[in-house]
Computed example of a mutant assay.
Amino acid sequence: MQLDQTHVAVRVRTLSEIGDLALVLLHRYPTTLLVGFTLGALPWIVADGLLLYWIPITEAQFGLDDSEAFTELCRYAAWMALLVFLQTPAAGVITTIYLGEAVFEHKPTWRSAYQVARKQFWRWFYCLGVRRLAIPAMLLVAVRMFEPFHSGFDVAAPIAIFFAALLIRAGRPFLPEMILLERCPLRSKDPQEITLRRRARALHRPVGNDVGSRWLTISGTLVVIFAGLFYSLVWARGVTTGYWNFGLFTWLVLYPLALWTVGGLSVIVRMLAYLDTRIRLEGWDVELAVRAEAIRQFGAESEPTGRTSAAEPTSTGDNRLGETLVAGAGGTR
């Protein structure tokens, strides 16, 4: 493995270049969304359907055009969007691991990515599913199943959860990459070991303003992409079927499809932003070049035994994948 021969040119990029590279990655690895993200999102999609589909189905029995139906559909749309927003980091676990392998591996496999995700299941499920409020929000929705609209639960609660999630993510925007690719332990008795808390502090604090401004720009762009995609799907359905109203098919299929598609794109963009942050902050491109030259000159034995990078392999059994993930991410350009 040549650490300096990656499928992505390891260099500092502007935000527009990151967006362009995300599209290049989708072209180079089209199964990233079609297979990987769908595989990771499927359990969440099913759970969301069980929790929320009863709202439009119930309202359809009495018609979707009156004011009461409008209120319930707004309730459905808000909770669905919130749940997808909260669940996307956990749903993108397999995709994140796959792209990490794709930096150096010419033919990464979904099987290997799935096996890594399964081995680390409890770590990422707790951090991305529980602590980032996806599971608590789902439990709240479950408690309110088949109950009428209530402003406290269906207006104030989603808004409060959304802003709480924003604050949590603002502190550790690259948490999925640190868990899955760098494999930082949650806790350690060794004071010298780089735990998740220490790694988050070292990576996020020095570039907090830059990462925050980029996140706001990316979020606004993704909202625009979602609106365009959703109405494009509605338009395509209207052209092919001649039915232009927002019926059950639109609410049960097209709306979640647009949300999850944009969610999958956000996973790729976040990973590329993580790469760029490491290059800007840690000179990761220089580190790769030096380590690659050391391996060519002196062999694998020249690799340092200590953890010179938080993304070092954590076990000899996972050495190949650990070397692959030393950078954190990658693609084709």
Rank of each mutant, 00 (worst) to 15 (best):
F149Q: 03
F149C: 08
F153E: 14
F153Y: 12
D154T: 07
D154W: 14
D154R: 10
D154F: 15
V155L: 10
V155H: 04
V155E: 05
V155Y: 09
A156V: 15
A156Q: 04
A157W: 05
A160W: 04
I161D: 01
I161E: 01
F162P: 11
A165W: 06
L167E: 03
R169T: 07
R169Y: 08
A170G: 09
G171Q: 03
R172A: 10
P173M: 02
M178F: 09
I179D: 06
I179R: 01
L180I: 04
L180M: 12
R183Y: 05
P185R: 00
P185Q: 02
L186N: 12
R187G: 05
R187N: 11
R187A: 13
R187V: 11
K189E: 14
K189M: 04
P191N: 07
Q192P: 09
E193F: 04
T195L: 06
L196N: 12
R197H: 03
R198Q: 12
R198F: 07
R201T: 08
L203T: 01
P206C: 03
V207N: 02
G208K: 15
G208H: 15
G208Y: 06
N209K: 06
D210G: 14
D210M: 05
G212Y: 08
G212W: 04
G212Q: 07
S213I: 09
L216G: 11
I218S: 05
S219A: 15
G220D: 05
G220V: 04
F226G: 07
A227P: 05
G228L: 07
S232K: 10
S232R: 12
W235V: 07
W235H: 14
A236F: 10
R237P: 00
G238E: 11
V239C: 09
T240G: 08
G242Y: 12
G242V: 02
Y243N: 13
W244K: 08
N245W: 12
F246W: 15
G247Y: 09
G247D: 13
F249M: 13
F249G: 04
F249A: 12
F249I: 08
T250H: 08
L254H: 06
Y255K: 07
A258L: 06
A258H: 05
T261L: 14
V262I: 08
G263Y: 01
L265T: 06
V267W: 08
I268A: 00
V269I: 15
R270I: 10
L272M: 03
A273W: 06
Y274D: 02
L275C: 06
I279R: 01
R280G: 09
L281R: 04
E282Y: 11
G283I: 11
